[in-house]
Lab assay of single mutants.
Amino acid sequence: KKKYVIKVYFEDTGKEVEIEAESKEEALEAAKRLAEELGLKIKKVEIYP
Rank of each mutant, 00 (worst) to 15 (best):
K1A: 04
K1T: 11
K1D: 15
K1H: 10
K2G: 13
K2P: 14
K2M: 10
K2S: 14
K2R: 07
K2F: 03
K2A: 11
K2D: 07
K2W: 02
K2V: 12
K3H: 15
K3C: 03
K3V: 05
Y4Q: 11
Y4N: 06
Y4W: 08
Y4L: 10
V5E: 04
V5C: 02
V5P: 01
I6N: 00
I6P: 00
K7C: 04
K7P: 00
K7V: 07
K7W: 05
K7Y: 03
K7F: 06
K7A: 06
K7R: 09
K7E: 02
V8R: 00
V8Y: 03
Y9K: 04
Y9C: 02
Y9I: 12
Y9V: 10
Y9P: 00
F10M: 02
F10C: 01
F10D: 01
F10R: 00
F10H: 00
E11T: 04
E11H: 09
E11P: 02
E11M: 05
D12Y: 10
D12M: 13
D12Q: 09
D12S: 08
T13Q: 08
T13M: 09
T13V: 10
T13N: 14
T13W: 10
G14H: 06
G14D: 10
K15W: 08
K15A: 06
K15F: 13
K15C: 01
K15S: 08
K15H: 15
E16M: 08
E16N: 12
E16D: 15
V17Q: 02
V17F: 11
V17T: 07
E18H: 09
E18W: 10
E18G: 04
E18L: 13
E18F: 07
E18D: 13
I19C: 05
I19W: 12
I19R: 01
I19Q: 01
I19V: 07
I19M: 14
E20R: 08
E20L: 10
A21N: 02
A21Y: 06
A21L: 05
A21M: 06
A21F: 08
A21C: 03
E22G: 11
E22L: 05
E22Q: 04
E22N: 11
E22C: 13
E22V: 08
E22T: 06
S23A: 04
S23Q: 02
S23C: 03
S23G: 03
K24W: 14
K24R: 08
K24Q: 13
K24C: 15
E25V: 10
E25R: 04
E25F: 08
E25S: 03
E25K: 06
E26Q: 07
E26P: 01
E26K: 05
E26A: 15
E26T: 07
E26W: 07
A27I: 06
A27P: 00
A27F: 02
A27E: 00
L28Q: 12
L28M: 12
L28S: 07
L28D: 07
L28C: 07
L28R: 06
L28Y: 13
L28G: 08
L28T: 06
E29A: 15
E29G: 07
E29I: 06
E29R: 11
E29F: 12
A30L: 15
A30I: 14
A30E: 13
A31D: 00
A31M: 10
A31W: 02
A31L: 05
A31F: 03
K32A: 12
K32M: 15
K32I: 11
K32P: 01
K32R: 06
K32E: 10
K32C: 09
K32W: 03
R33N: 09
R33D: 05
R33Q: 07
R33G: 06
R33I: 09
L34P: 00
L34G: 01
L34V: 15
L34T: 08
L34N: 02
A35Q: 03
A35G: 09
A35M: 05
A35L: 05
E36F: 08
E36L: 12
E36H: 13
E36Y: 15
E36D: 11
E36P: 01
E37S: 10
E37R: 04
L38V: 11
L38S: 08
L38N: 08
L38G: 04
L38W: 04
L38C: 04
G39H: 08
G39L: 02
G39C: 02
L40T: 10
L40H: 09
L40G: 02
L40N: 05
L40M: 09
L40A: 09
K41E: 11
K41N: 14
K41T: 13
K41H: 12
K41L: 12
I42D: 00
I42P: 01
I42M: 03
K43R: 14
K43V: 06
K43H: 13
K43F: 05
K43N: 10
K43Q: 12
K44C: 05
K44A: 11
V45T: 06
V45H: 04
V45E: 01
V45G: 01
E46V: 15
E46R: 04
E46L: 06
E46P: 00
E46G: 02
E46W: 02
E46N: 08
I47S: 12
I47L: 12
I47M: 15
Y48T: 15
Y48L: 14
Y48M: 09
Y48R: 08
Y48D: 06
Y48E: 04
P49T: 06
P49C: 04
P49E: 15
P49I: 12
